[in-house]
Simulated assay, not measured.
Amino acid sequence: MAQLISKRYAKALFDIAIETNTMDELESQVQMIHQVLESEEEFMQILQHPHILREEKMQLLKDVFSSIVSNELMGLLTLVVQKGRQEHLLEILSTFLDEVKTYKGIVTAVVISAVPLKEEQIEKIKQTLTSRIKKQIQIETQVDPSIIGGLKIRVGDRILDASIYGQLQGLKTSLYDMQLV
């Protein structure tokens, strides 16, 4: 149910972005609001608090965001609170950003390494993936020391495991298979 709610609101904002030809502007505004709401837990707690009136929550949103976001986005934010769906706000914004990525043909690749990667390494990975997938790539990096070394790359539902841990797991499986024969 929550996913359906998020898709409907996000789709409405996406349609407005296409109609008004303001996709890039709305995308940057939504990213900014998403970052604020994600990093400021107290702000989200206020929006979700049952004893604070909806009018006060809508006024808070207007006070904070009305001078820096478009009327269309402000209208969405106040509508979500007016309908009592503020607990879905982050998911709505994320869904909108995903729709924009799909529309622009951008694919996100999650690169997991044992140590933080340097910018040159990230750029080389990005170039390699772009040439193989033939789409624009956005890289997200994660550090996971448990993979010991190498990389794990996830693009959509595909995973390339070139980590030492993955190779050790493969060797372990092979050894078990040899013992069963």
Rank of each mutant, 00 (worst) to 15 (best):
F43M: 10
F43Y: 13
M44G: 02
M44L: 06
Q48H: 02
H49M: 00
P50C: 00
P50N: 01
H51Q: 02
I52M: 01
L53F: 03
L53E: 09
L53C: 01
E55C: 02
E56D: 13
E56R: 01
K57R: 04
K57H: 01
M58H: 09
M58P: 03
Q59D: 15
L60I: 10
L60K: 06
L61R: 09
D63K: 14
D63E: 15
F65R: 11
F65H: 10
S66L: 11
S66D: 14
I68L: 11
I68T: 14
I68C: 08
V69I: 15
S70C: 10
S70G: 14
N71S: 15
M74H: 11
L76W: 12
L77M: 14
L77Q: 10
L77C: 08
L77Y: 02
L77A: 12
T78Q: 15
T78I: 14
L79W: 08
L79M: 15
V80E: 08
V81F: 00
V81M: 06
Q82V: 03
K83V: 01
R85L: 03
R85S: 04
Q86L: 03
E87W: 01
E87F: 02
E91D: 15
L93P: 01
S94Q: 15
S94N: 14
S94L: 08
T95F: 08
T95V: 12
T95D: 06
T95M: 11
F96P: 06
F96L: 06
L97M: 13
E99Y: 14
E99V: 02
E99F: 14
K101W: 11
K101R: 15
K101T: 09
T102N: 13
Y103Q: 14
Y103I: 07
K104P: 08
G105Y: 12
I106W: 12
V107K: 14
V107Y: 12
T108E: 15
V110C: 05
V110W: 07
V110S: 07
S113L: 01
S113N: 03
A114P: 02
P116V: 03
P116K: 11
K118R: 10
E119W: 03
E120G: 10
E120K: 11
E120H: 10
E120D: 13
Q121N: 07
I122G: 06
I122W: 02
I122D: 04
E123C: 03
E123A: 12
E123F: 09
E123D: 13
K124V: 07
Q127G: 10
T128P: 00
T128A: 12
L129F: 07
L129E: 08
L129G: 02
T130I: 04
T130P: 10
S131G: 03
S131L: 09
I133E: 11
I133Q: 10
K134N: 13
K134E: 14
Q136P: 09
I137G: 05
I137L: 05
I137Q: 04
